[in-house]
Design a binder for these strands. Structure first.
Lengths: 232, 232
DNA sequence: ATAATTAAGTGTAATTATAACACTTATTAA
DNA sequence: TTAATAAGTGTTATAATTACACTTAATTAT
């Protein structure tokens, strides 16, 4: 490479934050992990989890780091949502925030972390006022989640590895805020051929018990290659 | 507000660029507006249009400003794509880039601007190597455009205000790289009831001429309110 | 004037996907 | 043994999508 470098020193510099909209599914409801902010401004107010981008860190590394520091979880489904760049969004200085949304299997999130970070699961139906533009971020993330779960099999990221059909249906019902017919739902999801039925039953939800299934990612990917189009 | 301010001075600072993937539709093909970069590094190489975020400017203002400076066009369809934040993406310094994609009616883009900015329309099929991660941005924008045009009526942004059904079909064929049946296409698009047929014919494409139509945004919005779901 | 050319425009039948709907079964607790 | 409860199952009606071929309006060439 024989290119002259430019150092861009004439251009402005900005702080960059990463904020995470962390979704979970528990007790038949879609939930969000939030906490009370630990520094000024807005100390003590409800906030998404976030942090600042470091000098020697890529943006996606930062998003993963922040989620890991908070939950101890890695290899979590995460997708960039949008970058928020209004001038006045943070009264304490010019900070742009890259919002990511993450789907975590709520059962894997331990109480220990919850205490350590003061994290709380709140139902999306009774979401409190969050600081700055965080409520906008949540709204936008929810819209995105609805679009995505309708066309990609990411709902499974919110469930344990082994789950029942009624659990899966209840998840979609929570995401779309609508009731689904269980016969049609079962027919549709099983017809795709991406679920593997296990021998075992989950007896926790009913007397009869419901068979456990597992999502087979390989099968799904083979279907996609053939041009298959996942939709709920 | 009785909140103490924090100035975040302990956190790192970054340059922020905005890069625009500008799509147009001409001669039955989807095209991209690019130019030869005017400064180091990579001076003279093919690049998307971009610029740096200014101190007193919101992110979306910056995106609009850059597009306006280049094309003289305002109120253009534009959507944020993704923020690119790899450490080494720009060899001349740490710069994060927020990519936007824009849809412009190619006929409104005048030759004058083209000369002034050295802008060139290139077919997506013969896209040259672009600098840094710009080819990734284009790939990602194209995926997004395909998803969006399938579920929202944004294709019209690429056409003149008055267009024919065969033109519209040809646009979708270019976007999806597939052939569509003209009877089924016409049936589908007209059945939505969002196109208004005009008296006039466009005689440029054939001897018989094709009737002109206009997209009626109001009607579309009324449909959406009723829960209608636009799909091609 | 007439014929040839060309893309626009049109309808129907077959197939597939979606939506609506009610009873039986496995298990546990009383 | 019975009562209770959620899981599990099939069919029919309706709507959406796909496949498919000829006619028409206007222009150009003869």
């Amino acid at each position: 490479m024989n290119k002259k470098k430019s150092n861009y020193s004439e251009y402005a510099l900005f702080h960059l934050a990463v904020d995470s909209i962390i979704f979970g599914f528990d007790e038949g409801e879609l939930k969000l992990l939030i906490h009370k902010r630990k520094f000024e401004p807005f100390m003590g107010d409800w906030s998404l989890f976030g942090g600042f981008l470091k000098e020697e860190e890529s943006l996606s590394d930062a998003a993963n780091r922040i989620l890991f520091e908070l939950t101890g979880l890695q290899k979590i489904y995460m997708e960039e949502l949008q970058t928020y760049g209004d001038i006045e969004r943070d009264p304490a200085g010019r900070v742009l925030s890259v919002a990511y949304y993450a789907l975590i299997p709520a059962h894997r999130y331990s109480e220990d972390y919850s205490k350590q970070y003061g994290a709380t699961w709140v139902s999306l139906k009774e979401l409190p006022d969050l600081i700055m533009d965080h409520n906008d971020m949540v709204k936008s993330a929810l819209r995105r989640l609805r679009r995505r779960t309708a066309s990609q099999p990411i709902g499974f990221e919110l469930l344990p590895r082994e789950f029942t059909i009624p659990q899966l249906q209840s998840l979609y019902e929570a995401i779309y805020q609508t009731e689904l017919d269980k016969r049609n739902f079962r027919k549709k999801i099983l017809s795709m051929g991406v679920l593997v039925k296990l021998e075992e039953k989950d007896m926790s939800g009913s007397r009869k018990g419901a068979f456990l299934y597992r999502f087979d990612k390989r099968k799904y990917e083979r279907l996609i290659e053939k041009g298959y189009n996942f939709t709920i």
